[in-house]
Write a protein that binds this DNA or RNA. Structure first.
Lengths: 182, 182
DNA sequence: CTTACCATGTAAGGCGTTACATGATTCA
DNA sequence: TGAATCATGTAACGCCTTACATGGTAAG
C-alpha cells in the first residue's frame, strides 16, 4: 500500500499494453499523454531501471542492426502494482496555468498586454485541437478492436471538450477587455 | 531578463494589490488562486525572505496585541520585476490530471472502476463550481470600483467555463462506459 | 553530407512538498 | 477547555527538469 510514484504508474500503464523502449515511452508521453501528463528522459530512464530492480518490469536486448535498443515489458508483479494504483482514489489533479496567473495580475500590465497573452493561448489551442479531433476519429473507427481504445477515446474527448471551452473563453475574455479600450 | 521563479511572481502579484502577511498570502492561494495555482508555506516563507533580500519587497512589524505578524509590501523594484515578467510570453501551462491518467489505463481496471473515478471527479467539480459562480457574481457587482476586478473575473470565468465542460464530459464519458455493461 | 530522428543515459541543481516545531487567540 | 484559526518558520527529502555526453541510421 505504498504511495505509488506517478512516473512508475505511467510507465507500467504504457507497458501493460505493449513492450516498449525508453525512447518509445517518451514518444507516447509527447503525443497521446501530452494533454494531461508529461515526463522527461531524466525521469524515464532512471524509473525504468528502478522498475526492473523491483521486479515490476523486465528488460531484454532488442538491438537491431547495431542500433542499441532495450525493450521493457511488464511483469505479473508490475501488473498487480498497476492494478492496485488504479483501484485507489485519485489524490489530486494539478493545474498550473501560467496564462491565468499573468491574467490574474493583468491590471498591472494593462489590457493590451493581457490581450496578447490571451491571443497566444488561443493560437496554441487552435493549433492543437485538430490533432485531438483527428485522434478521436481514428479511435472511433477502431473502438471495437481493442477495449483500451475506448479508454483512450475518453481522454481525448476530455481534451476536445476542454479545448473548446478554452476557445469560447478566449472570445469572451477579449470582449470583456475590449470594452474599456473604446 | 532572468528566468523568473513563479513563486516570486505570484507573491509580488498579490503584494502589488495590497500589503499582506505570509499567512494571508497562503490564504489567497487557497481561495482565489486555487483553481489554477498552488503553493505551500514551505515555499512561501522562504520566498518572502528572499524577496526582501533582493529588494523586491519590504517587511515591517505588524504585531497586534502580542500576535506575531510580519507585513510585506512591494517595492518599486519589485513592481518593475513583476511588470517585466508580465510582459514576457507565457512559457508553459502545465496540467497533471491523475484522473485522466487512471482513465487512460482504465482497460486494466475495468469499466466499474473507471466509472468510480469519473464520479469522484464529477462530485469534486460540482462541489466547487458554486464557489466560482458566486465569486463571479460578486466580482461583476464591483467591476467598476477597481480595474483589477475585471482581471479576476476573467480567471473566474475561465474556471466556470472549464468546469462546465468537465461536467458535460463526465456525463458523456459515463454514457460511453455504460454501453458495454448492458 | 547534413538534418532529422533513433536511442540511452548521467549529473547538477532547482523547486517545492510534507512533516515538524511553536505559540497566541477566538469562539463555542 | 478544547477546537479552530491566526501566525511563522525549518529540515529532510523527493521528484523532476535541464544540460550534457555519445553514437547509430535514414532520407533528402
Amino acid at each position: 500500500m505504498a504511495i505509488e510514484k506517478k512516473i512508475d504508474c505511467v510507465i507500467l500503464g504504457l507497458l501493460s499494453h505493449e513492450d516498449l523502449t525508453g525512447y518509445e515511452i517518451k514518444k507516447r508521453m509527447d503525443t497521446s499523454l501530452k494533454y494531461f501528463w508529461g515526463a522527461s528522459y531524466g525521469s524515464i530512464y532512471p524509473a525504468l531501471g528502478d522498475l526492473v530492480e523491483r521486479g515490476l518490469a523486465n528488460k531484454r536486448d532488442g538491438t537491431e542492426n547495431k542500433r542499441n535498443k532495450i525493450i521493457y515489458s511488464i511483469t505479473e508483479a508490475g501488473r498487480n502494482y498497476l492494478k492496485e494504483w488504479l483501484q485507489n482514489p485519485v489524490e489530486k489533479d494539478e493545474l498550473r496555468y501560467e496564462t491565468l496567473l499573468k491574467l490574474f495580475f493583468g491590471s498591472e500590465g494593462g489590457a493590451v498586454q493581457a490581450m496578447a497573452h490571451i491571443n497566444a493561448f488561443q493560437e496554441k489551442i487552435e493549433r492543437e485541437l485538430p490533432y485531438l479531433t483527428s485522434a478521436a476519429n481514428t479511435l472511433r473507427n477502431y473502438i471495437d478492436t481493442d477495449d483500451a481504445h475506448k479508454y483512450y477515446l475518453l481522454t481525448v474527448e476530455f481534451g476536445i471538450k476542454t479545448y473548446r471551452a478554452y476557445l469560447e473563453w478566449c472570445e469572451e475574455a477579449k470582449a470583456i477587455l475590449g470594452e474599456e479600450n473604446k
